[in-house]
Design a binder for these strands. Sequence first.
DNA 1: CGTCCATTTGATCAGGGTCAAGACGAGTGG
DNA 2: CCACTCGTCTTGACCCTGATCAAATGGACG
Lengths: 234, 234
Amino acid sequence: MSRLDRSLIAGLPMFKGLAPADLDRILLQARSLRIAKDQTVFEQEGEAQSFFLLLDGHVRVVKTTPDGQQVIVRYISPGELMGIAHALGRTTYPASAIAAVDCVVLAWPDHIWPELAESFPSFGTGTYKTVGTRLQETQSRVVELATEQVEQRVAHALLRLVKQTGRKTDEGILIDFPISRQDIAEMTGTTLHTVSRLLTAWEEKGLVKSGRQKVTVVEPHRLFALAEGRADKS
Amino acid sequence: MSRLDRSLIAGLPMFKGLAPADLDRILLQARSLRIAKDQTVFEQEGEAQSFFLLLDGHVRVVKTTPDGQQVIVRYISPGELMGIAHALGRTTYPASAIAAVDCVVLAWPDHIWPELAESFPSFGTGTYKTVGTRLQETQSRVVELATEQVEQRVAHALLRLVKQTGRKTDEGILIDFPISRQDIAEMTGTTLHTVSRLLTAWEEKGLVKSGRQKVTVVEPHRLFALAEGRADKS
DNA sequence: CGTCCATTTGATCAGGGTCAAGACGAGTGG
DNA sequence: CCACTCGTCTTGACCCTGATCAAATGGACG
């Protein structure tokens, strides 16, 4: 196995300001894993033996209820940490993480967390800041779910994905990984039927283009107006 | 103004293991405030000049949407921190905090946060753990809002309040501060009308007793069964 | 005693879930 | 290369949960 190059993680906010030698020391503790599409990185309720950094790909984090319903908590993009159960004071993962495409991740044994956070304060504060950010995002979702209609929620969800992973194409901004109507439904607390109806309605209005596991936002502004509840006449 | 006694904060998890002298040093930086019922402790979007510890009373944390709808993010109980914008990497409060009853709080200037977290690592890790816990709770609420019917959500909300602030009486467990139908609606993403109908239905079944701004859970077990979607015949 | 809220309760209605079929397209194996 | 299969997506019909609209009731408090 070849050595991991420090350029993989230099430049990431939580490793900001660390000396090259420190980066190497940190990388020595990591394993690099290749996760095939649809494979799980870690599983809800499983013992949290590792925490992970996504180097390449996209991962969806899913909570499953006792009766089998699924909710997509968030999508992880390259450069983000995941499975940081330790930072939440847990010994078990609160959700499952599934590769939306083939992925590359770094994995560290969970038990080195305290040492890492102590030796490199910037790592500690950086990840806690991540947790803080996620708390705010999650609270915004609560507000959305509690106050908005389905149409607005779906519009917001698409806009969030566009911002997070949008890739510019000649037709508009494409969400850069395969995403089904069912996935969108699980992000917004609705059904794939309703999502399908909304997307075809929006397609007729020229707001989006979509196909099998593929969504392109053509007119972000008008979609945003819709998300904000400002009706759009046309 | 009399000196604050260290017994106020000794014993709280975030000050665990600190020497009495340290506690005194920390308290010297704090002001103690009395907040009358319905007054705000801090306001959404306001500059985060302080963070707070609730010593006595109950505070509700509310987010207001641009169009004026309100969502109750959480209730704060004595011994909990609030307004810790700094720990979330913010300079402004993400929500408002309103005293549900007359309250006593300690306030520290926000700018001493870094110093505090550095001088007393247990304080830093303790509060970050708090943030982690709140993230998990909030994610659970997202799952609830996305998957459950109104009846189950209201039942869960009441059970959470009972666990957090329940006081045993001879009729059952009383939620220990004034709470209106409207408040419960704002916790669960529904309307006061629906909450009212649910409560009267439950009262007829003997699950709860309720009055003006007052709810007592008589049979937590049956209410829990209801919350879990296991229908209750009777 | 009067006023102001919180609450209750009825009537109506629509957003969106559920049920049911089918169409479409991508990958598989013959 | 084609037929088949499986999973995704679409679309229609129907219905139910819970929101909305409207009024009246009942306490609490000044």
